[in-house]
């Protein structure tokens, strides 16, 4: 199956400014698969994304990309300087010209068909997230990389964005690598969750809680179908300095070795 991966990172380590940011991380994204990366602040989620994008080079380990892989990227840090005047149309075509019909169609796909000639500084948080998503999908990518696409959006806005992403995955069959700041509530359509804290703490599938009464009452039936709980299964704990200690002694279910931390 390795030959089919869009991106495969094997045993990747990254040290910056004397700090070990990634430590022996392995992930794998296949066509049509939705992979969600969760983890606390400073866990190295964005660093791992940059490695996948080729913007950061690993100190150790290996990155394999499918040949001619086309990536659509929505950056977490894209904050526009107020001094730079820009319309949505211009924002979407910064690096590649596109026919207007495609621009309008793509904006309609993400639910904001009326924004083409709006100045981007006047957009709301939710509209801005959708416009950035539109830019990421505009060139029909093989892999969609979304770094916290639901940032500054309320829970219903997040549900809508997740629905758009799931539909896009079905429509163009792209793989999706998504970073989420929420440790427990992830997109229900996620095929694989990786919990990252320097290393992969655990990985697995989100639990199907869409029919759970409490969950439905909390988010409403539509949202409950879109969201899911990811049950973490850690075999270790992290001290405040990030070092790893023994956890509650539960099983080593998702088999991950931590030789470097000397707790074996």
């Amino acid at each position: 199956m390795i030959g089919l991966s869009l991106i495969e990172i094997r045993d990747g380590s990254l040290t910056r400014g004397g700090r070990r940011i990634l430590d022996g991380v392995s992930i794998d994204i296949r066509p049509g698969q939705i992979v969600t990366l969760v983890g606390p602040n400073g866990a190295g989620k964005s660093a791992l994304v940059k490695v996948a994008l080729g913007l950061e080079i690993l100190d150790r380990g290996e990155v394999r990309r499918a040949p001619n892989l086309r990536i659509g990227y929505q950056s977490q840090r894209l904050v526009l300087d107020q001094t730079l005047p820009l319309s949505v149309r211009r924002f979407l075509t910064l690096t590649h010209s596109q026919p207007v019909t495609l621009l309008q169609q793509t904006l309609a796909d993400v639910g904001v068909p009326h924004l083409l000639d709006t100045g981007i500084h006047t957009l709301s948080g939710g509209e801005w997230q959708r416009v950035m998503l539109a830019r990421a999908i505009l060139r029909r990518p093989d892999l969609l990389v979304l770094d916290e696409p639901t940032q500054n959006v309320d829970i219903m806005g997040a549900v809508e964005i997740y629905q758009i992403v799931a539909r896009l995955r079905d429509d163009i069959g792209c793989g999706v690598l998504m970073v989420s700041h929420d440790l427990n509530v992830v997109m229900a359509a996620t095929d694989q969750v990786y919990c990252l804290n320097g290393h992969i703490c655990c990985s697995g599938h989100p639990a199907d809680v869409s029919r759970d009464r409490e969950f439905q009452r909390l988010f409403g039936p539509a949202a409950a179908a879109t969201l899911a709980i990811y049950p973490h299964n850690h075999d270790h704990t992290h001290a405040p300095d990030g070092s790893v200690g023994h956890g509650d002694g539960r099983g080593h279910e998702h088999g991950h070795e931590h030789h470097d931390h000397g707790h074996h």
């Binding site: 913007l55 894209l78 910064l94 590649h96």
Partner: peptide
């Protein structure tokens, strides 16, 4: 200028 990372990914 708008965003270096995104522009780099787009070539």
């Amino acid at each position: 200028t708008v965003d270096q990372d995104t522009a780099m990914v787009e070539g």
